[in-house]
Design a protein around this nucleic acid. Structure first.
Lengths: 338, 338
DNA sequence: TTGAAAGCGCTAACAC
DNA sequence: GTGTTAGCGCTTTCAA
């Protein structure tokens, strides 16, 4: 029978466990970290005392003393667009064996916010940082470069990494999709996308897309932007707008699958022949949409793999900077004719 | 002209800023925290020195010394189901003015994982914890109860909170939906949901639902469970299965909107009269789906408001435990006849 | 295998 | 307005 747990008004320290078990603080510390050799009986007594007291170690003190923090900062623009949760899965999965823990910060695509999130995170001296994108404020870049820890910029490789980078070429992805569409015989192509000046990756995809069009002697016949609201709904609305304004359009290229899905549902509801009369394509390869009546053409962004490789880089901390390019596969689905 | 930044091989400390600015560490600390009175010129010199050096404070040391950590732990089961991102938005929004920062941990609906996430978080001595659900391991409850910080259990109020709770009654939500369905004249009702033993809230909704059915002398005519995969696709498949197996079913109650949407798309594609031949309802009120051809009946789970109120409780830290019940509104949409 | 001393980088509390 | 001292709760290092 152990005595009832003592007054929980003060947070427990190693000292409390030490006194309760009659073993020095140092030995208690060793037991709790599975460090060094501790005799089995001592170890038992310590563990029992710690458990009975409900001791939770103070990582702040531990980190200060050991100069070691098992945290990895992850800075992403948004949680709500289906793409980052999957990246997080890859990161967690890979970090799981390593003793490292991801800590997420969200920037909402705001550079100022990104800067302050990075600053806050660095002030906890994490073991590494994973950050979406290659575009950051000068101050942010400087902080990261000086932090003396592995930095991995993810999603995109079209640019100049601070340290490591893992991602795809969005420029090339846009180009590839344009080539596929042109090869399928579409000629009156419109773009429908988000109005986010700081979504650099969407911007690069569009650049690549237009580049390929222009190489084929084509230009976009229409474009439509949106911001906020339900993506599915916006997809419908934008699609309606474009089809009305430019009746002879024969392809709609969406900046993401979600608005593409809205467009697809709209076309089907209107009885528009897809992909005969108009073709459609999105971007991301979100599994979420697999249940649609027709499979939207898209490119998967290798999200899981990006998360995994980024985490690997943090865990392994190779001395030399690395850039890992992944290659998305184009999934023609049922909305591009062939 | 300032000299080029010095050797960045060691991480900078207050001492470096102190030396660079010719001001005591203590004063530097004051300036950097906007604390106490510091003369304007001194403040300027310090800030300039800090900026020039690229100093990032060490919060570990600061937290240890001040016994204060501006972090709020947020423990949620999943990032990928649309419901928690919105809760996070509410939390961030509310915490923004307070100097507190949310730190997210994900459990994947695994109790063991939840326990370890909680342990890890508490070991950083956060200012408060927000945790989804009221069901936790005994060890987890004990740790939380003893942490001496505000604890807010969110989403659900059908149970016994550790400290504060903010959420809805899922039992009642299920009951309400059943009553609505029965009032609309449906009698052959099936349930389609996730196979997750640890999704206690879905379970409670179903309990409430069946309770109301039974009060009306009804029982479920069929049920179908799934796990993993694309929710939209699963929704289609499960719906097909139920309609085949139980042809006279006249209502499908889904445990979430996403599979409900899959079911809706399936029914429409099959030319099934919705809501005449079969009615449909989901749960969550995800705005995401607003673009569907028909609006799915659902109940919104007050996610944003839950996040806000939970964060408020942490920030205000009222001495007495509080339970805040929110009341979801039933949105009949177009898939329940009237 | 165990213990004692020193100190991680900062801030509270108090002097000046 | 600014500086000094002590110490937060651990771990490192070294001694026993």
């Amino acid at each position: 029978m152990t005595k009832p747990t003592p007054d929980p008004r003060h947070t427990l320290t190693l000292r409390d466990v030490s006194e309760a078990s009659g073993v020095s603080e140092m030995t208690v510390s060793r037991v709790l970290r599975n460090r060094g050799d501790v005799s089995a009986p001592t170890r038992e007594r310590v563990l029992e005392a710690a458990r009975a007291l409900g001791y939770v170690p103070n990582k702040i003190a531990g980190a200060l003393a050991s100069q070691r923090v098992n945290l990895v900062g992850v800075v992403i623009p948004s949680l709500s667009n289906m793409v980052f949760p999957e990246v997080m899965t890859g990161i967690s999965e890979t970090l799981d064996g390593t003793g490292l823990q991801p800590v997420v910060g969200v920037t909402n695509y705001l550079p100022d916010r990104e800067e302050s999130v990075i600053y806050e995170m660095l002030s906890w001296r994490p073991s590494g940082m994973i950050i979406a994108g290659l575009e950051h404020s000068t101050a942010a870049r400087t902080m990261l470069a000086r932090a003396g820890i592995p930095i991995v910029e993810i999603m995109d490789i079209d640019g100049d990494p601070i340290n490591h980078a893992v991602g795809i070429s969005h420029r090339r992805a846009g180009r590839q999709m344009a080539e596929e569409i042109i090869a399928a015989g579409y000629r009156k192509i419109a773009f429908l996308g988000t109005q986010m000046p700081n979504d650099f990756r969407a911007k690069k995809r569009l650049e690549g897309f237009e580049e390929a069009l222009s190489r084929a002697g084509l230009t976009l016949v229409d474009r439509e932007y949106y911001s906020g609201g339900s993506a599915l709904l916006k997809g419908r609305e934008m699609t309606a707008a474009v089809l009305n304004r430019t009746p002879d359009v024969d392809f709609l290229y969406y900046s993401n699958d979600m608005i593409g899905a809205g467009g697809l549902l709209y076309c089907l509801a209107q009885g528009i022949d897809v992909p005969g009369r108009v073709g459609l394509a999105g971007f991301n390869g979100v599994e979420l949409l697999d249940g649609l009546p027709r499979k939207l053409a898209t490119m998967d962004a290798c999200r899981l793999e990006i998360g995994r490789k980024a985490a690997r880089l943090i865990a392994d901390a190779p001395p030399a900077s690395q850039v890992e390019e992944l290659f998305p596969t184009l999934q023609p689905g049922d909305t591009i004719r062939h």
